[in-house]
Amino acid sequence: MTREHITFGLLSDLHDEVLNAARKKSLVEHLNGCPACGREFEQLGRMVKMVSCLRLIGIRSRDEFARATLSRAILCDRKRKRQLYYKRVIPSAVAAMVIFLVGIDQFKNGPTGERRSGARIAAGAGSGEVSREIGSAYDMRKTMSILRKNRARVTVVTDGYIEAEAPSRFIDDIQRECDGSFPTGVHGFATAVGYTEGGIQDGLILSSGIMNQRPADQSGTVRFRVLLR
């Protein structure tokens, strides 16, 4: 028997049987020979037993509670499914709307972006058309009205430029009108390869230097870009 009394913690562990066999054996030996520790251990057991009787606390109308809780659970589940449905449907509806609006925009202004415009221009250039770059001294609105007046068909509009095509005979007029007092020449731009099956490949490569200002074919169409300055 160990001489020192058993701590309350060890008595508690012994009660719950969370000690190894050797420890348990030595404590039990002490308890058998020590009335003080024995009494303490007995009281602990009695207390735990009393506390465990509080298990009698429970719901008075269990069936009613279970029914009510299940009804709420079913309602919550329906709500969750509805929300899930809207979560799935609304983004697709919004996406559809965006595609629709972009479609309208492209229908009006042509597709935007360097890569796509480059590809388009390459195709144009490939069919014998002349590409041009024109500087405009005016704002977007005024430049657009100049283009409209000169029978230009606008294909791309960005913050920085407008792409359009017009009968070659109008090009010089467009340039003159757009230039205003702006003393620049016409800058050409070459383009790299456009579409493949997998999508757009290379984009526009702007070339520096002055291009031939005179359209090669008076009856043809010139694709050009008006830079807004």
């Binding site: 509080l54 298990r55 606390i57 429970g58 719901i59 269990r62 509670f65 279970a66 029914r67 809780t69 299940l70 659970a73 079913i74 589940d77």
Partner: peptide
């Protein structure tokens, strides 16, 4: 979802008891 009633019936008293020990009010614990 109705199968969930088996879970409710099994655990309702234990959860109620714990809640009751925390709030000491029958309706609140429910």
């Amino acid at each position: 979802i109705e199968a969930f009633s088996a879970i409710i019936e099994k655990y309702q008293d234990r959860i109620f008891r714990y809640a009751y020990s925390r709030v000491y009010n029958y309706d609140e614990a429910l």
